[in-house]
Design a protein around this nucleic acid. Sequence first.
DNA 1: AGCAACGTTCAGCGTTCTCTCAGGTTTCCA
DNA 2: TGGAAACCTGAGAGAACGCTGAACGTTGCT
Lengths: 231, 231
Amino acid sequence: MEPIKVLVVDDEPNIRDLLASGLRFAGFSVLAVANGNDAVAAAEKGKPDLILLDVMLPDMSGFSVTKKLRSMDIMAPVLFLTARDEVEDKITGLTVGGDDYMTKPFSLDEIIARIHAILRRTKQASVEKSIIEVGEVSIDEDAHEVFVNGESVELSPTEYKLLRFLMENANRVLSKAQILDHVWEYDFNGEMGIVESYVSYLRKKLDPLTSEPVLLTKRGHGYMFKSNKKK
Amino acid sequence: MEPIKVLVVDDEPNIRDLLASGLRFAGFSVLAVANGNDAVAAAEKGKPDLILLDVMLPDMSGFSVTKKLRSMDIMAPVLFLTARDEVEDKITGLTVGGDDYMTKPFSLDEIIARIHAILRRTKQASVEKSIIEVGEVSIDEDAHEVFVNGESVELSPTEYKLLRFLMENANRVLSKAQILDHVWEYDFNGEMGIVESYVSYLRKKLDPLTSEPVLLTKRGHGYMFKSNKKK
DNA sequence: AGCAACGTTCAGCGTTCTCTCAGGTTTCCA
DNA sequence: TGGAAACCTGAGAGAACGCTGAACGTTGCT
């Protein structure tokens, strides 16, 4: 199976590197450029499956880039990146077709989830499943719904992201630092105590429905989602 | 099989030597430098599989080093080293992809375990398994879980590290000094009696589940984890 | 504007862990 | 065989760790 090709376009080197290495690690083949002209050139040459595009670029706006691309018959879906306080109305309405957008700062895991969601919508034949199921708990990535033994559980956005990350890494201990890195936005500079808080929230919602606790504390190491898998 | 190449970057000679000799002994091919510029040069030339990088360097910060490396398309994962009281927020958010970080003071065995964990995550094709199994005892490095004949055993962090070190060197006598050096943090200045205490703790937890004692005392020499495996 | 949901911090509390010490036991050897 | 050295282990002080309820500010919705 070929790796999925993603073109990253952002002029801030920090963000660009963050995205590039994060996505590479997630198994994508990544090409990263810093401006609109390079983006168009790279898209033409590299035939990416998806483009991660900052709206504010030094030479031209992200929208001009897409316009140019579409006119060149490059139809790869675009995931726009925009600062939170930039007017969102402009974005809405322009994300047609398979496109989507996210506001900065984002969390890496969220970006990856979005990319998968877009590709899922775009290529129906995608192998990716939108359901994550571990033990008694399952997540519907499309509907953002969580079920425990068939029963629906309401989670806040952060609770949801945390649970997803823990389940993606089931049966592996994750340190609070790792969790912070993947679940929270990249500019979060608070304390790790917040992870404890959210684990506590999740337990309060999940434990009453599971036959045994699924979120284990590994004192001194971190937390782990445990599936009581039979062999 | 080629040895794994590790680049060590730390300006404190003591730590650098400690790491270099410890890692060499563990079977790595080690190159050690003292500052950021040398690190970049060495990384370009030596193509290391992993970089052990102190965050506080005399000429440039460890982050600048990684930035430079990434821009040069050197994608080796980085294990950052940072003083415990340095603000950890700075690290958070920057350890993406395969990267990770540890706080000083560390224990040598913990560093080695981390390196293996990172390489395991990075190269999926790695032969490394996350399970250490000697005789009736097995350790799951991902889940930080210990089993004796299939039965789970709860260990404290230090107990776990001690057992891992003993099992990694099964059927080899380890002196208390060696154990202290590898399992405890390098600035530990207590007595060796603590090793006796922890061996005692381990025995109390393991012996009831094994057919015969696995932790042997070699009077005057040290301790040994014994496997009664036939060949 | 008012309200509800959410994210974040913090302090208090109980639990667990680390480390030391001292008294007891085993081993070795003169 | 007696004694010293090495080792074992229970007890306990203090610190570290983790959990949770409460408070507060922010955001978004009605």
